[in-house]
Design a protein around this nucleic acid. Structure first.
Length: 123
DNA sequence: ATAATGACTGGGG
DNA sequence: ACCCCAGCCATTA
């Protein structure tokens, strides 16, 4: 990889997503400055090398579904990993944002304020 | 410098 | 819910 400043930011943010929670490309993009960066965020994750420890599988599309164009294999891997973290998929293969979604801004604020998004546990 | 390529999104049909 | 389309933008060729 070459110009990693953008990648680095994406990876840093994705690394913050806790186990059992998911975020959308758009959320990451917004945290980076603009929703318009969503597509670029996807590009960055696509370029993610192995063994980085970045929980890439916790990033899904705004519709709550795994977003792979054509590559079913990776999609299956992602779903496996999420299921392993107790993330549930509805009948339409979409996750419930209310239960598993994680809010970057809210989390950041809560962290600074030392508060927690109470009553927000899956299961 | 220009053109093509996505792990995207929101809006419309 | 599903499919399609026009914007978007960092990265590549």
């Amino acid at each position: 990889m070459k110009a990693d400043s953008f990648y680095r930011d994406v990876y840093s943010l994705v690394r913050l997503v806790p186990r059992g929670r998911v975020v959308s490309y758009g959320q990451v993009a917004t945290a980076l400055g603009s929703i318009r960066l969503a597509r670029a965020v996807g590009y960055a994750l696509h370029a993610l090398p192995h063994g980085t420890g970045v929980p890439w599988h916790r990033v899904i599309n705004s519709r709550g579904r795994i977003s792979f164009r054509g590559d079913d294999l990776r999609g299956a891997v992602q779903e496996e990993r999420l299921l392993a973290e107790r993330v549930e998929f509805g009948p339409d293969s979409a996750v419930d944002w209310g239960r598993f979604g994680w809010d970057f801004l809210g989390a950041a604020s809560c962290r600074k304020l030392r508060r927690r998004p109470k009553g927000r546990r899956p299961s």
